[in-house]
C-alpha cells in the first residue's frame, strides 16, 4: 500500500500540466516528508518521561472504556465530565480520590466494575500524564504579538 501511495504521488507529479505546478507539488511533498520527520522525532521537550508498562495498561483501559467520551486530557476529549490532566497532583484530589470515583457510577458516568489492579493502572497512567505538563496552564505568559509562552513541567 505504501508503494501504491508512493507510485500514485509520483504519477500525479508527472501528470501536472505546467512546470510551475510540478515545482509547487515537489516542494510541498518534500517539505511534508521533512516536516513529518521532525514532528515524529522532535515534538517533545526532552526529557519526557517514558510511559511505564502499568501506565500503558491504564491507557489501554482508558481507551477500551472510552473515558475520552466524557473526560479530557490537555483539554482534548468530550465535555460531559472534568479534565483529568493534573488530577493526581491536585492537592485536594489525588490517587485515592480517583480510585474512589472509578466504580462510583456518579451522574452520567457509567457504573464500571474495575478490579483493584485495574484501578492501580488507571492511577499510574494519570500520574504519568500529570508529569508531562500543566492543563490549564495558569502560568503561561501572554505576549503582545498574540503568542502564548507555555509553562513546561519537565524543565522546571
Amino acid at each position: 500500500m505504501v508503494c501504491f501511495i508512493f507510485l500514485q504521488s509520483i504519477k500525479i507529479i508527472f501528470l501536472s500540466k505546467t512546470k510551475q505546478n510540478k515545482l509547487i507539488i515537489i516542494t510541498l511533498v518534500t517539505t511534508f516528508v521533512m516536516y513529518n520527520y521532525f514532528v515524529y522525532t522532535q515534538t517533545s521537550i526532552e526529557p519526557t518521561p517514558k510511559l511505564s508498562e502499568l501506565a500503558i495498561k491504564g491507557q489501554q483501559l482508558y481507551q477500551e472504556n472510552n473515558c475520552t467520551a466524557c473526560h479530557q486530557i490537555y483539554g482534548l476529549g468530550g465535555y460531559l465530565g472534568p479534565d483529568l490532566t493534573n488530577i493526581i497532583s491536585n492537592p485536594i484530589k489525588g490517587s485515592e480520590y480517583v480510585k474512589a470515583f472509578l466504580n462510583s457510577g456518579v451522574k452520567s458516568m457509567p457504573k464500571f466494575n474495575f478490579s483493584e489492579g485495574e484501578k492501580e493502572a488507571f492511577v499510574q497512567f494519570l500520574a504519568e500524564v500529570d508529569k508531562t505538563g500543566y492543563y490549564p496552564n495558569y502560568k503561561a505568559e501572554m505576549q503582545p504579538d498574540g503568542w502564548v509562552k507555555l509553562m513546561y513541567k519537565t524543565n522546571e
Partner: peptide
C-alpha cells in the same frame, strides 16, 4: 506510545 507528548501530538 511510550512518549506521551509525542504520541498525543
Amino acid at each position: 506510545r511510550e512518549n506521551f507528548i509525542r504520541d498525543i501530538s
